[in-house]
Design a protein around this nucleic acid. Structure first.
Lengths: 206, 206
DNA sequence: GTCTATATAGTGATAGAC
DNA sequence: GTCTATCACTATATAGAC
């Protein structure tokens, strides 16, 4: 019986949107925004270029769609830092969760890195508002822990920077990491995890 | 008396080359290779586009010229690590020198980051040869220091990665660093220097 | 909804006057 | 050595058939 469903997005539509976003993530994360062409995205998604533009109005729209959700996902582990938990355990859990994300979502990490590296032209003021607000909130928690003598006294914001820098390095500079370690096939993450655990355990001890 | 000098590059030529490379460094480091246009470079260098191409045969030639010298400069401080020196002092000197470079040469850092982030399409195999060789050489030194119990036993390569990650973060993610710290005008480096000094002092203590 | 064909603008590079 | 004009090519986006 036709005419019953008016505008629920069909399964094939949802599948195509997902394929486009996945292909675009691949391309944007390795070639940057300008370096990516609609042809590349269309081919990898298995669609024609005009058909791709039926799903998204423009190249920028695809990019924005990807970025918009990303910052939130990216900061979830920091958001989960529990003021009531054990300080060292909470921070180490954050570090390890962040490193896991580098391994499991390297494309997302590189997309974000590309964006920030180029001056955050699309993410823009969100860094100074949403991101800053979250860091400020967690800074209070860190300072309290330091005042109680439960972790070493350090600059709280630079402590967070150090977590970001060390964990994201393995996704963003993956090519360099593997080239220097040699043994092409080997997974660098187990050793990285050990190293980072040692580093922060020592750093946080009062 | 004409005809005496055959082909010594005139002062204006040298000046133009320098202006082009400087403009190109600006552009490439913030927009990437594909994201940069010859128009942008030409305008910032104060030359016409054809005139720019009189000095360099192609866009790629400018990019290659910039990259070729960069890796060497970038690794100089690591090369300077003295096996005969005091281990902790040598490593801390390396860390601080590297952080200084992030402050003084942020564009070069971002140019390099852009390149590696996108899979090192131009730097390519140099990472697996020249860079790996240098790291391997210094790894031997680090291991010896660890065997002698003069610094803590850590994975030497990941130790080097951590130095790179932490110091370069301040150049590559400058926008984010300043957005989170707030106080637009403030220089983040003094605090960063203190933090990183503390971090590596703790980490290297046996 | 998906395709072929094409409009339109931008971009790397060249030709040739001065 | 430097400029104006322009070529050849690519890329985003649209029109319109099916």
């Amino acid at each position: 019986m036709p005419g019953l469903q008016t505008k629920p997005p069909s399964r094939i539509q949802q599948e195509n949107r997902r394929a486009i976003l996945d292909a675009a993530l691949d391309a944007f994360s390795t070639h940057g925004f300008r370096g990516t062409t609609l042809d590349q995205i269309a081919e990898k998604a298995g669609l024609s270029k005009p058909n791709l533009l039926y799903y998204f109005p423009s190249k920028e729209a695809i990019h924005t769609e990807l970025l918009s959700g990303l910052l939130d996902t990216w900061l979830d582990p920091l958001r989960a830092l529990d003021p009531a938990g054990d300080p060292k355990a909470e921070l180490l859990r954050y570090v390890h969760r962040k490193l896991e994300m580098s391994r499991e979502m390297p494309r997302e990490s590189r997309l974000f890195a590309n964006e920030v590296l180029q001056g955050a032209p699309h993410l823009g003021p969100l860094l100074g508002t949403g991101l800053k607000a979250l860091v400020d909130e967690k800074t209070v928690v860190l300072r309290a822990w330091m005042d109680e003598g439960r972790i070493a006294r350090l600059h709280p914001v630079h402590l967070i920077f150090s977590i970001w820098a060390l964990t994201q390095h393995y996704a963003d500079f993956d090519v360099q990491v593997r080239a220097v370690l040699g043994d092409e096939g080997t997974d660098p993450y187990p050793e990285a995890s050990l190293f980072i655990d040692t580093l922060f355990t020592k750093l946080l001890s009062p």
